Simulated assay, not measured.
Amino acid sequence: MPSVPDTAPGARPPAPSEPAHVAVHNVIHTYGGAAGVPALGPLTLRIPDGGFLVLVGPSGCGKSTLLRLIAGFEQPTDGTITVAGQPPRPGRQAGVVFQQPRLFPWRTVRGNVESALRYAGVPRAEHRDRAEALLQRVGLAQTGDRRTWEISGGQQQRVAIARALAVDTPLLLLDEPFAALDSLTRERLQEDLRQVTAGTGTTVVLVTHSVDEAVFLASRTVVLSARPGRIVLDLPIDLPRAGRDPDELRGLPEYAACRKRIGHAVRAAAAQPTT
């Protein structure tokens, strides 16, 4: 039987009557056809406008699969997904950032961002100014003329985020974007991501294996079970972030409590047999 989603006392995920930017309803996904490997579901999930949802769970639980389904890169075996009330359309409704930056090495930093602007139909005359503004937004001002192989891995991931933000969509999907980075760069980019998306109304869905990253970034964390992935914990994260630096935030008792609860759910999910 599917586990019942757990929520924090006094808090809850969006009610069915509340508007959702992303709505996942009774989704099941199987690789290899009906008799193949069950990867996900049944799963129902609503993500409101401006929410920052982080998906965590054991390896192979369907986190990245769910992200690809929301992006429209794959179609669910059963159930429905809508983004802003419409079926997902790849490249049109969401900016996507992967674990590897996937930049064009023959283009400059600015050229990589301009390629996304061109795909989005932005007039050519606006490309340079828009690209420079996006690079400044992710902390890469004055790097536009450099080649991607001339900058660090952390800077390359910033370019990938700027490129995702180049498409004027209210949804940003990130699949373990910081996993390959050192811990210091990772923490710095986590803070930058919060600042870039805060107050813009952007709806964010991020996949990670890091419990600390989930607590630090999320307004809500969902833990998936072992394959096929189902929701075993749906936890709103309501931390007093205003005016606190990252070290102070991580030192709060509320932070430690959320981290403990999510970590326990992930370990319990990893101990479950897959089907």
Rank of each mutant, 00 (worst) to 15 (best):
P2G: 02
T7M: 03
P9C: 07
G10I: 00
A11T: 00
S17H: 13
H29Q: 02
A35G: 14
V37C: 05
L43G: 02
T44M: 04
P48R: 03
F52K: 01
F52A: 06
L53A: 05
V54M: 06
V54Y: 00
V56T: 07
S59V: 10
C61T: 01
C61H: 04
G62K: 01
L69N: 12
F73A: 13
D78A: 15
V83F: 04
A94Q: 09
V97K: 03
Q100W: 06
G111D: 11
G111V: 10
N112Y: 00
E114V: 05
E114P: 08
E114Y: 08
Y119M: 14
A120H: 03
G121F: 05
P123I: 03
E132N: 10
L134Q: 06
Q136C: 06
R137M: 14
V138M: 04
L140V: 00
T143P: 07
D145Q: 11
R146C: 13
T148I: 15
G153L: 12
Q157E: 09
R158L: 01
I161D: 09
R163P: 03
L165N: 09
V167E: 02
L171P: 11
L173Q: 11
T185K: 03
L193S: 00
Q195F: 10
T197E: 10
G199A: 01
T200I: 02
T202Q: 13
L206T: 03
V207E: 03
A214T: 06
A218C: 11
V222M: 07
L224P: 04
I231Y: 04
I231H: 01
R241M: 08
G251E: 08
E254S: 12
Y255K: 10
A257E: 10
C258T: 00
R261D: 12
A269V: 10
